[in-house]
Design a protein around this nucleic acid. Structure first.
Length: 258
DNA sequence: ATGGCAACCAATGGTTGA
């Protein structure tokens, strides 16, 4: 059972690339972020024709998340609880009915820049809401994976030059503390458990030849409940996706489960 | 020389992202 998370940076502008990568990574479940289209505008036909069941929570122009699965999906829920006035499409969850079911939450955490400011406040409150929701799911004692673009660089060695990122919303102490609080609820970060090297990036900016110079950051993560962590067996980053024509600026991060 | 992106919507530029 392989689960990937990938920020596609527009599913419509990049559909051929998306289909190519989906084929290459051979996963059972793929969490997509930054669809940048409304739910009804999602390219269901092309992606379903490639063999996927799709749960989509879209929004015009920005954000938007989806879970693609080779197995049936049940209990689909959209939106993160805790703020009825929040209309940004950043969270979707579903129960993947594989032989051993796994519940998957797909998230696109707010960037939060400029910090400090209202966007940063929204980021931190969103992280607190995510932790509250995650806590309520852990009570169920299921295999549960929270996968997505966390917009959080956990350690200095998760970026090419920490000096560039000082005071940025992706590295600020409040962001790192909120990420740690989430993990402290009982989640195992797949990368940390199975790899944990420095300089293993999932994002390279389009500017300044960042990919060619390997000036990247690691911001796409998979967090596993204890029952999911017990089944963890491999982790990988599909770096090749960044070298394709018309690439997303992110690449898939992939965890394998028994 | 100290640069160099991409997508969106709307409009031929401004906003957002990280």
């Amino acid at each position: 059972m392989k689960i990937a998370t990938w920020n596609v940076n527009s599913v419509k502008a990049r559909l051929p690339t998306v289909l190519e990568v989906l084929k290459a990574i051979e996963c059972d479940v793929v969490c997509l972020q930054e669809l940048k289209c409304e739910t009804d505008a999602f390219p269901y036909m092309e992606i379903e024709d490639a063999g996927w069941t799709c749960a989509v929570h879209g929004q015009k122009s920005y954000n938007g998340v989806a879970i693609l699965s080779r197995h049936p999906l049940e209990d689909i829920e959209t939106g993160l609880p805790g703020d009825e006035s929040d209309e940004q499409a950043r969270y979707i969850e579903a129960l993947v009915m594989a032989e051993e079911p796994i519940r998957v939450g797909c998230l696109y955490l707010p960037n939060g820049n400029p910090a400090p400011g209202p966007k940063f406040d929204y980021k931190i409150s969103w992280m607190d809401r995510l932790a509250a929701h995650a806590k309520s799911r852990l009570v169920w004692e299921e295999a549960f994976v929270l996968a997505g673009d966390y917009n959080c660089i956990p350690r200095p060695e998760d970026c090419w030059d920490p000096a560039v990122w000082i005071d940025d919303a992706l590295t600020r102490p409040e962001t790192l503390a909120a990420f740690q609080r989430l993990k402290n609820l009982g989640f195992t970060e797949a990368f940390e458990a199975l790899d944990n090297r420095g300089h293993q990036y999932t994002f390279w900016d389009y500017q300044r030849g960042a990919f060619q110079k390997d000036h990247g950051i690691r911001i796409d993560h998979l967090l596993c409940s204890p029952q999911a962590a017990d089944r963890l067996e491999a982790f990988g980053i599909y770096r090749d996706a960044r070298a394709l024509t018309k690439p997303s600026d992110h690449v898939p991060a992939i965890a394998s489960f028994r």
